[in-house]
Design a protein around this nucleic acid. Structure first.
Lengths: 241, 241
DNA sequence: CAGTGGTCTAGACCACTTT
DNA sequence: AAGTGGTCTAGACCACTGA
């Protein structure tokens, strides 16, 4: 199955909305759409749900499905293409040249927070490393990470100079596809100021969290201190859930 | 229908996981669960999907559904109870006394950004107001908001001294249930420093965005400058979507 | 009361993983 | 090949909204 039919239909409806092919802000009812696309109503519902999750339409029980006027207006400040994306848009490289400088790499006994976050036993050791990431030679974030030795025994300074996730996916067929992230901000420390080229009054954004392999194994605990101009996290929020 | 069956089942499974009632990290397969709960497999799938969205389980096609070990470990730093919540956890009052000080209230002609964000025409005016919100007398955020006069003609300084959303829901049966939010951080301005009691080196967190009525009408454009210790946004991220 | 979205079912078949 | 999750259908009935 190349693309599920509900994804295909969601794309068609999205394009129809963009092209102003619906005469009002209210979409045709689901039963009509099902007939028109010659699919079951369930498939229409899944397509509609996708669009709702993306903020493109609003569902209102007993009343109908409505187009988000902002989507029609093509507001460029709203990133509707990615669905509720976070990290990826935040640190997306956008064709810019990414360079990574490894600041250190050690093997240590994890403290209790890291041990619990990564689901480790008493015997486990972890790699501990810091990297400075730059875009077009401009430093944008300091990463401090911990990875269980057992999960990735061949880690080396060499490997750290590229994207770990790409290496894992290509060479080890491990896919990191979820993260639990915490976003905060803090005044910059002298160390931040030096590495990220910040003034003392300029802060860092902090993204800290746990990255998971697709089978649910916690793989990495990471805390990233970002130059404040590069922390930009956009999201739709359902306030009632 | 009091509670949909898939929600009920999701709750039971969540409790079972907490109580260690599954012998391995892998859940029983969906067809077995369907038999055991005497529901259709579709209902099981919806329940499982809910738990996956909450980060409690991981799905792996062809292999099974797996418990997130972190959930088992009862990590208190992970807020698993709220589903992907954002704003609400960030500004949750937690029983603390909330006070609101209205700094100003005007009617103005919106600039083009606000006009487009709120889907306004040339003739529309907006209320423009600033509020300082405190918890237990400590100032935590400065809110700058814009609301179309047409959407809420009776707005007054008096009303602003309480939670607008509560008033809307109780008195006007309008429900604000979605928001498009942008999170960033900036150095604090002298004004921030004075109002939020910040040192010059201490930053503000910024949550800016648009709040929508449940029929999709944009209702409010708001930019909130938070004392940096109070910006704390936690979320699960699906990296592959 | 008619229209419309929400829930739920039983079953068929596809796609991926593991043995 | 067997096991397991993913997609999709056709249809029944419930819950909410609005004329």
């Amino acid at each position: 199955m190349a693309k599920p039919i509900y994804v295909a239909i969601a794309n068609i409806i999205r394009n129809n909305i963009s092209a102003h092919k619906y005469s009002s802000m209210k979409l045709p009812d689901e039963r009509t759409l099902a007939e028109r696309f010659e699919v079951s109503r369930s498939s229409i519902k899944r397509a509609i749900q996708l669009l709702a999750d993306q903020g493109i339409i609003f569902k209102k029980q007993g009343s109908g499905n409505f187009i988000n006027p902002l989507f029609l207006r093509n507001k460029t400040s709203l990133d509707y293409t990615g669905d509720n994306v976070g990290l990826t848009t935040s640190i997306v490289t956008n064709g810019k040249e990414q360079t990574i400088k490894v600041l250190n790499l050690d093997v240590i006994k994890p403290d209790s927070e890291i041990k619990e976050s990564l689901f480790l036993t008493e015997d486990d050791f972890v790699y501990s490393f810091k990297r400075l990431r730059c875009l077009d030679q401009k430093p944008i974030l300091i990463e401090t990470s911990y990875i269980p030795v057992r999960a990735f025994p061949e880690l080396s300074q060499n490997l750290l100079e590229q994207s770990l996730f790409n290496y894992l996916e290509n060479e080890k067929n491990m896919i990191i596809n979820r993260a639990y992230l915490d976003l905060t901000t803090e005044p910059s420390t002298p160390n931040d100021q030096e590495l990220l080229n910040l003034k003392p009054t300029e802060p860092v954004g902090i993204m800290a969290g746990i990255f998971f392999v697709d089978d649910g194994t916690p793989f990495e605990y990471s805390s990233m201190r970002l130059h404040y101009r590069y922390l930009n996290f956009s999201t739709f929020v359902d306030l009632d859930k």
